[in-house]
């Protein structure tokens, strides 16, 4: 079974990602699938179906309302230089208060994990050729952060002023 990083640990994972242009699995299929958003919306109540969002997804209130019932939400990085997924994750966590798993998919590399976990990703399906163990070690290269984010309630400038 493939492995991913979830909540700071390497774990086996049963979810299989289905690409946008592939044949979509049968509803009766008891394998867990990550479906492209449009396909998932067709059977969003299915417990073994979860959506993945393309980086250019427009996150409207209506879409977010549907997503709240997803068992997990994948966000695709078509290229690690495409930073739109960071904003999507942050909006899901802070604006819509999504509590489930948010998983980074696609061109996911060790050196971006720190930023990803800060904006609310808690699971990472690294690119297949990458070393999970090394990535796990590099999850938090910084012990100090200036900004408020999913992992820090207040920006440092507020913390300092309160401590001063």
């Amino acid at each position: 079974m493939p492995k991913i990083i979830r909540d700071g640990q390497i774990v086996e994972d049963a979810w299989i990602r289905v690409c946008a242009d592939a044949n979509q699995p049968d509803t009766q299929d008891s394998q867990a699938y990550l479906l492209p958003l449009h396909a998932w919306l067709e059977e969003s109540a299915h417990p073994l179906r979860a959506p993945w969002l393309a980086s250019d997804t427009e996150l409207t209130d209506a879409l977010a309302a549907s997503l709240m019932q997803a068992p997990l939400i994948g966000i695709d990085f078509p290229d690690f230089n495409d930073g739109r997924g960071y904003t999507l994750a942050r909006q899901l966590r802070t604006r819509y208060q999504y509590q489930g798993e948010i998983r980074a998919l696609g061109d996911v590399l060790q050196d971006q994990l720190f930023y990803m976990q800060r904006v609310g990703f808690n699971a990472f399906a690294l690119r297949a050729d990458k070393d999970l163990q090394a990535a796990l070690q590099a999850l938090k290269p910084f012990s100090v952060c200036y900004q408020a984010a999913s992992d820090q309630a207040l920006p440092l400038f507020i913390q300092r002023a309160q401590g001063a």
Partner: peptide, 8 residues
Amino acid sequence: TLHPEFAF
């Protein structure tokens, strides 16, 4: 500095 949302 190292803003997590705006590095890319």
